[in-house]
């Protein structure tokens, strides 16, 4: 069940990614329309984070490509924002919440340039949007998990992008933060932004997203949520890996065989 769209804001074409020769994603191929809140759903080890890292060019592709706004990532980076998993950084870094949000202004400011007052105003405004303005000067290690996640989101807002990729923004946070983030994402969607969110919880996925990508090392489905949420597709996603596929992956790794000739 894969719904392809006309004039997609994101098109992923036949994407295969391998770690250590072992494919983590097989031939993923889908497209996403503009202005949707998209959930990337699947069990642990399904390759959800791998998918957005591959789209963002953070890991090498074995085959395929991703086009954003119909172009290569490098020509549209100003319009794209990536939010890594919260656990991927060491929060004991000597920086304040505001310092982290200011990182979202680095690209616009450019190499060797100092940040300006207007960057600071923008960053404070972004903190306000995630209701963290009172914590601007707090050292980031002293923030709770949910607050740290909101700081990451504020940094992403500071990039003023059109297309957002967020890796597990709902993982390990309190209920207040969860609803605050959801509200913010919905507002952004209503403003015409497109947001792809890696999400682990099937229960809330239906409620949160407009468009769902079901993933389990291969693409199971992609489309409007009403079409995707049926027992058969969910069973295909969560009912374990395809035995032959995962055996082939192990074999490729064992023989150190390339995925593509």
């Amino acid at each position: 069940m894969i719904t392809q769209v006309e004039n997609p804001i994101l098109e992923v074409h036949n994407l295969t990614v391998a770690y250590n020769k072992k494919p983590a994603l097989w031939n993923v191929d889908f497209s996403i329309p503009k202005g949707k809140l998209v959930g990337i759903i699947g069990p642990n080890g399904a390759g959800k984070s791998t998918l957005i890292k591959a789209i963002m060019g953070l890991i090498p592709l074995s085959s395929g490509y991703a086009k954003l706004f119909g172009q290569d990532l490098n020509s549209v980076r100003d319009k794209v924002s990536y939010v890594p998993q919260r656990e991927s950084v060491d929060w004991d870094f000597p920086a304040s919440a505001l310092d982290v949000v200011l990182m979202g202004c680095y690209r616009r400011r450019g190499l060797f340039r100092w940040l300006t007052k207007s960057d600071k105003t923008l960053a404070m405004d972004c903190l306000k949007q995630v209701r963290m303005e009172g914590f601007a000067d707090r050292q980031i290690a002293q923030l709770s998990g949910g607050q740290q996640q909101r700081v990451f989101l504020a940094r992403s807002l500071a990039q003023q992008a059109e297309l957002y990729f967020m890796d597990e923004p709902f993982a390990g946070i309190d209920a207040t933060t969860e609803s605050a983030i959801l509200e913010l994402l919905s507002e952004m969607r209503d403003d015409g932004k497109t947001i792809l969110v890696v999400h682990h919880d099937l229960q809330s996925a239906y409620e949160y997203f407009d468009w769902i990508i079901l993933l389990n090392t291969r693409l199971v489905a992609s489309g409007p949520k009403l079409q995707i949420f049926n027992p058969k597709l969910l069973q295909q996603t969560y009912g374990g890996k395809l035995s032959v596929l995962s055996q082939m992956g192990d074999l490729l790794q064992e023989k150190e065989f390339p995925v593509r000739e």
Partner: peptide, 14 residues
């Protein structure tokens, strides 16, 4: 930025 968050640094085209 590279010391704090390498992936983000890469994602903004640094």
């Amino acid at each position: 930025l590279v010391a704090f968050d390498l992936h983000f640094a890469e994602s903004i085209g640094l």
